[in-house]
Design a protein around this nucleic acid. Structure first.
Lengths: 225, 225
DNA sequence: GCGAACCTTACATTTGCCTTACAGGGTCCG
DNA sequence: CGGACCCTGTAAGGCAAATGTAAGGTTCGC
């Protein structure tokens, strides 16, 4: 689950993004509207958290620009209590929800989850591949009828593979999905991560496996459909 | 047990919420209809206490809005003695009970407990996990046939775990369930609380234990069902 | 068979949780 | 009013799982 968090107040940004990260999200944090546009173009975020009152570009215009290119990305707007018109404008412009500043991080997290749970959203779906099932809401995995004990990375990786079941994922794609751009790993990190995931799945006799395409990427086999 | 208390008179609010807290409830106190709507959206309260005669939004409309989104949240309305029609209107709109102002705090508490004890309510249930039984009405815990002496926090925590037996609870979920939003603890507080609870359960040879999932949360093991 | 890409293992770091000790505040007595 | 408790959050240190890094082995394609 990768989020873009647009907030000009650096300290607030630091704190909040740390909390989001510790809740299992991958977070890219930017401080200007321009950076936000840039980032939103470069990656497919699962949701974008946007603070209104940015210094350079009017916040709402960021929202509009991004929505034009990617209409399906859910937005959550953060706004001051008294800026009621802004809120309305935000919802008109296609924001999916908003939180009123000052807000609790837990509230923000709840809203993000709620937005992701909506129809077409990323959460609340049951992913299936062979005898593997991944409950994206609870973040639990079953292989056959045994629960799988996966670490955070392993689960994120499996989540990614199952969402793109049967399709080929290059290392770059995987890297972008799992790591924020302030934490670039060596290419090997992904190899090791997939190795660990494969091992756990194998040990549980999973009937779907991750295959390698030399020089191209990986894919999760898909004999159902 | 987390309550939302909507009352515009600040002094009264202060006193009453203090009493509620000292009776084992976690209380969020707000003074306007807007805040009430906001809070009710953000968290799952076990019950909402609503004073009619709020300054900004008509009280009943708060009730209606919340009930629309969350039909199961019980409401208790506080109203002046002479506002009989309001009472009727309140009950029509889906309030579950009311108290007449001025009221004794003990009466309010009794009503809250009564509402929570109703079918589908939070109280009056017997929770079981292994040889642990929690009487939610009396707030007592037995392990095997030994009574467990738990503090308020420990009991609330165990209550939470037993209601969500087998499911994973992140620290945030726990924090939201146990702490009002004007008393945010450090993450460590929850670690310490679970540690204390675990120790007591262990000392009493409980057959169900709380397990840790690193970076994800905790869960109460569940071999019955 | 050669090299590149990947797998695998071992190692080091980081992170998150456990644990203990301590301090403030509340409560129940004398 | 004061002291002895208990409850509970904070702080700090240690430990172990998680995860990235590095290094060598293996496999595949050419």
């Amino acid at each position: 689950m990768r989020l873009l968090y647009v907030e000009d107040n650096e300290r607030l940004a630091q704190n909040t993004s740390a909390s989001l990260k510790s809740n299992g999200f991958t977070v890219d944090c930017v401080h200007t509207g321009e950076d936000a546009l840039h980032a939103a173009q470069s990656f497919d975020y699962d949701a974008i958290i946007l603070d209104l009152g940015l210094p350079d570009v009017e916040g709402i215009s960021v929202l509009k620009s991004v929505k034009e290119a990617k209409p399906d990305v859910p937005f959550i707007i953060c706004t001051a209590r008294d800026a009621l018109e802004d809120r309305i404008a935000g919802l008109d412009a296609g924001s999916d929800d908003y939180v009123v500043k000052p807000f609790h991080v837990s509230e923000l997290i709840a809203r993000v989850r709620a937005v992701l749970r909506r129809p077409g959203g990323a959460l609340g779906v049951m992913l299936v591949a062979g005898n593997i099932t991944l409950n994206t809401a609870e973040r639990t995995v079953m292989v056959g009828d045994e629960p799988a004990r996966l670490s955070r990375r392993e689960l994120d990786l499996l989540d990614l593979f199952m969402r793109r079941k049967g399709r080929i994922l290059s290392k770059d794609v995987i890297e972008n999905a799992l790591y924020g751009f302030d934490e670039p790993p060596t290419p090997n990190a992904i190899e090791v991560a997939t190795h660990r995931l494969r091992k756990k799945l194998q040990d549980l006799n999973a009937t779907a496996a991750i295959h390698t395409l030399r020089g191209i990427g990986y894919f999760l086999e898909d004999h159902d459909t």
